[in-house]
Amino acid sequence: MTDSTPLSPAGDRHFDGLVEKFAGSLYGGPRGALRLAMLDALLPEMLELDGQPLLDVGGGLGQLSAWFARRGHPVTLLEPAGDMLEQARQSLEGLPVSFMRAPLQALPERTPGPWPLIACHAVLEWLSDPRAALATLADGLAPGGQLSLMVFNRDALRFSNVVKGNLQKALDDRLEGTGKRQRLTPISPLSHDRIVAWSRQCRLSIRAVAGIRVFHDYLRHPPASEDDWQRLVALERRYCQVEPHWRLGRYLLYTLVKEGDLPTEGNVR
Rank of each mutant, 00 (worst) to 15 (best):
D3I: 09
T5A: 15
L7M: 08
R13M: 09
D16E: 15
K21M: 13
P30T: 13
R31Q: 14
A37C: 09
A41C: 10
L43Y: 01
E45K: 14
L47R: 00
Q52C: 07
L54M: 05
L64W: 04
L64I: 15
A81K: 02
G82E: 13
E86K: 10
S91V: 01
A102W: 06
L104D: 04
A106Q: 09
L107C: 07
P112S: 03
G113W: 01
P114A: 08
A119S: 15
A119I: 11
C120H: 05
C120D: 06
E125P: 10
D129S: 06
P130A: 00
A135W: 03
T136Q: 11
A142W: 04
L147A: 02
L149G: 01
R158L: 15
Q168S: 13
L171E: 08
L171M: 14
R174M: 14
L175M: 05
G177D: 00
Q182K: 00
R183E: 15
P186I: 10
P186K: 08
P189F: 04
I195W: 00
A197E: 15
A197W: 12
S199W: 04
R200F: 14
Q201H: 03
R203F: 02
V209L: 12
R213T: 07
R213S: 00
F215T: 04
F215E: 10
L219R: 09
P222S: 02
A224M: 12
A224H: 09
D227F: 01
D228W: 00
W229Y: 11
L232K: 11
V233I: 09
R238Y: 03
Y239G: 11
H245S: 00
H245G: 02
L248K: 07
R250F: 12
Y251T: 11
E259S: 14
E265C: 06
G266S: 13
V268M: 01
V268S: 05
